[in-house]
Write a protein that binds this DNA or RNA. Structure first.
Lengths: 339, 339
DNA sequence: CTGTTAGCGCGTTCAT
DNA sequence: ATGAACGCGCTAACAG
């Protein structure tokens, strides 16, 4: 604060009353004369008084602030989840402080420390790609900090969690490909360290097995990221195979867009020769030519629900409880890139 | 805080020393015996002690927190600006608290109030579409809150500002179209209440005039937003004109994508019959077919620079100063959608 | 080297 | 209806 902000003491001094009276007047305490109340309120407005939430938080041992930690904020997925979180928190008079871990465990730990010092009332965390050791999260749980993990799982950590049922969505996508006659279905997978990517891969395998199709190592490639760029090389590799696939299921839309780019450049027709299905339903996905078939995820609801569950814990006394895991349903959206 | 966190008093009591000594030990005060220092640090770690930044902030009258207010967070533009802001602030040991105004003046005002109460050390604001009255920002300035406006201008408000030179970028784009032989150039504009959209429109007009091309009202349509959906109707309208345009310059990439979609559906060739140039260079823009020509904006640098300027004000004593306006340069990127 | 005191801004007893 | 005293957690000034 670059300048001394006005305090209740300032107002009290000017009005020749006590700070306590000012406080009461400002908080609509019943036992206060209308006269002084009005004088106080008028002067407060004139002096542009704003209550100091630091002092209040210190007193109440509650900051009304939730710390949100995400791997990155620029992805459509996380930024729209955050939209849901914010809408719920705002409705409950809560603030939100956001941190990006940039997929780094170190940065994630630092954020947890910092938010702990700020004394946030609770944490909403989607762990970084590198987070395989949950020590810093376990400490949070042990210190009775309300904590909700969302989107990406921390397998042995027993806290509240909210996920999208990725397995279900991926299963639908691959089964659709099979039903429409595709027999050589490839999968460009995401980093195996991500629970979400693992679930999508598992569903891919299970769908093939269910229909007695062979699961070929050649048809499974792990991409280096989630961008179209990351989809380029894997797709080139697939197309160069002796027996190229007749369908590609990708870990997300970004990679699918890179895949479609390569396929079109090669003069191969989508979906006649190769079907493509992505995951996420990003805003531009339906404007490609052909428009991208994909699995829509309820991102906004994911944020809302995570925040709602967290707030329940925050508002409850810190009683013992059994952590709950919630799953939201995705939805297969068929467009032009698949038969 | 759901549970009493450990304080220096807790540590002091357990060690039979005074809180002040604990404080000194924890802060590497020179005059402290190695023995007690080590005992304190050991116990602090054991008890998972974290300094209470609320208390510290109250004492220091400084929260080390910057309030950032943007119209929305889900757009690529603002989320990558925020990335730049965060990197600079983190490097300086500062925190950031983000608020979305959702393009609403009321929400923007509420955020300003809230951040004032939280006692942020400074504000970084990109005003909402509805913000035409700057009263709430003027109050900030008058209360000597460090404030930097970025991306969108508040014309009569004399504070530090950081912009991209939109005019220059738009001028380059339209001149390029002219140079490549386009003569009937249309513009799908953004909301006239946005300084950025106004600058792009002004450059469009000026470029045409400069080359003695007529500026036709029929060729200028204001879109209802920045999404592909918002580009659909205006484009249909343009194509239905007795003399349809041979080029369309759009206010941003989102609208351009909607425009390309309509043009391709109509069986018209891009860029042979119609050139299209957008604005922003969003991540997927180069993967469309044809790839979208556009104007790249230094978003990350915009965030960095805004934060850097703000921090200079925050760290300087509140002396009088003349507000500065900085401009960053955009860059025309020619790809497949233009000749 | 360490303890005591005071105060940051506020709401809440307990008095009056 | 109002005031005085206290304490949230911490550091700085002053003693010793």
């Amino acid at each position: 604060m670059s300048k001394a902000r006005t305090t209740i003491t300032d107002i009290a001094r000017e009005l020749n009353i006590s700070p306590a009276t000012v406080s009461r007047a400002l908080n609509n305490h019943p036992a206060i004369s209308r006269q002084t109340r009005e004088a106080v309120i008028a002067l407060a407005r004139k002096l542009n008084y704003h209550p100091n939430l630091l002092a209040l938080s210190l007193l109440r041992k509650r900051t009304n602030t939730i710390g949100v930690i995400v791997p990155e904020i620029t992805s459509y997925f996380f930024s729209s989840v955050i939209g849901g979180v914010q809408d719920l928190l705002t409705a409950q008079g809560m603030n939100m402080i956001i941190g990006q871990s940039n997929e780094s465990l170190e940065e994630e730990k630092a954020l947890v420390e910092k938010f702990t010092s700020i004394r946030v009332d609770g944490f909403l965390i989607s762990p970084s790609r590198e987070t395989k050791d949950y020590g810093h999260l376990q400490v949070l749980k042990d210190s009775l900090f309300p904590l909700v993990i969302f989107d990406r799982d921390c397998e042995d950590l027993e806290v509240d969690k909210v996920f999208v049922d990725e397995y279900r969505g991926a299963l639908q996508a691959v089964e659709y490909l099979i039903h429409t006659g595709c027999r050589r279905i490839a999968h460009i997978a995401g980093s195996a360290t991500l629970s979400t990517a693992r679930h999508r891969l598992a569903a891919y395998r299970d769908a093939l097995k269910k229909y007695q199709l062979p699961v070929l190592d050649d048809y499974i490639i792990e991409s280096s990221g989630f961008t179209p760029e990351a989809g380029i090389e894997p797709t080139k590799h697939l197309l160069a195979l002796p027996e190229p696939p007749d369908a590609i299921f990708t870990v997300n839309d970004g990679v699918a867009i890179g895949a479609m780019y390569v396929i079109k450049e090669a003069g191969i027709s989508i979906p006649n020769e190769i079907s493509v299905i992505g995951f996420d339903d990003e805003p531009y996905s339906c404007y490609f030519k052909p428009s991208l078939s994909t699995v829509w995820q309820p991102t906004y609801e994911l944020g809302m629900l995570s925040a709602r569950i967290l707030m329940k814990r925050v508002n409850a006394a810190q009683e013992a409880f059994t952590p709950k895991v919630e799953k939201l349903f995705p939805e297969l959206i068929i467009r032009g890139s698949s038969r």
